[in-house]
């Protein structure tokens, strides 16, 4: 059984001219230990989809299942990392990391231990008593990451986590996220990354869900079997990037590729394929 099942999700918004359909029937699965990226043109509702998955927003129709059980309230098995960091400016870094912990009903000892652990693994030691405004964007997003990891979620949801950062910082932070993901001692079981950046998706994810323009649907789910660490300069990486670009811009898989994505056969052979 898949960890998360996304089943025929539809989302409409009311507008001045009747309803607008944002998401029009999206289905896919997220497996245990899956690093899944969702890419698509801006406005295709991928961030909305992520919120529907956690239960922050309601779908107009369709269903999300987590370990077989429908998600009908905000799931505390998942934790979100926000594009804008969404840190409470009046709480210290330590208190921000503790933000989600208090709500879990853990013992104070357990909470204290969690805070220390995740402040440490994200490299935030030394900033415990700082306030978010004292920190650079990169450091702030580490706090966002620590806050999410500290609740030990089964699924880490990341909504454009690097797009509010300068290019160099984003480059460094992506590498750190991958390092944390590799660590078997750390949560989560699976990651869902929403991004508009195709290269970012391909550099990080095991599979990429490609969504169409609004009203969006899934154009293709592309497995990324390039070996890690991914070499962005490699021929295979370029090919896959081009393939995804053409998918998105043309709105359908190129005729040569067929319904099932071809690149998985032609492109590399890393052992990381969880399909």
């Amino acid at each position: 059984m898949a960890l998360i099942e996304v089943r025929d999700i539809k989302k409409d918004y009311p507008s001045h001219h009747g309803t607008i359909s944002i998401i029009n029937g999206v289905s896919f699965d997220v497996a245990d230990s899956d690093f899944l990226a969702i890419v698509g043109p801006s406005g295709c509702g991928k961030s909305t989809l992520l919120r529907i998955i956690q239960g922050l927003e309601r779908a107009t129709s369709g269903e999300i299942r987590f370990r077989g059980r429908p998600v009908d309230a905000v799931s505390n098995e998942m934790a979100m990392v926000f594009q804008s960091f969404a840190l409470m400016p009046w709480l210290t870094i330590k208190e921000n990391v503790a933000f989600g912990l208090t709500a879990r009903g853990w013992t104070p000892e357990k909470i204290a231990a969690q805070i220390d652990r995740y402040i440490s693994v994200t490299g935030l030691v030394g900033f415990e008593e700082a306030y978010p405004r004292e920190l650079s964007g990169g450091m702030r997003q580490r706090v966002g990451l620590a806050r999410a990891l500290a609740v030990e979620p089964a699924v880490l949801l990341m909504d454009e986590p690097f797009s509010a950062l300068d290019a160099l910082t984003a480059e460094g932070l992506r590498e750190e996220v991958l390092q944390l993901w590799r660590d078997p001692e750390l949560p989560p079981e699976a990651v869902i990354l929403v991004t508009h950046n195709i290269e970012e998706a391909l550099a990080m994810a095991d599979r990429v869900v490609v969504m169409s323009h609004r009203p969006s649907r899934v154009l293709s789910v592309v497995p990324v079997t390039l070996s890690r660490p991914r070499e962005r300069k490699s021929e295979a990486f370029y090919e896959l990037t081009d393939y995804l670009y053409s998918l998105i811009t043309e709105g359908s898989p190129p005729p040569s590729a067929g319904a099932k994505p071809a690149p998985s056969e032609t492109l590399s052979t890393g052992p990381g394929d969880t399909q």
């Binding site: 922050l56 905000v74 709500a103």
Partner: peptide, 12 residues
């Protein structure tokens, strides 16, 4: 986003 983060982490 602060509102969402509050909901997302189940802070009540």
């Amino acid at each position: 986003d602060l509102r969402e983060a509050t909901d997302s982490f189940g802070v009540r």
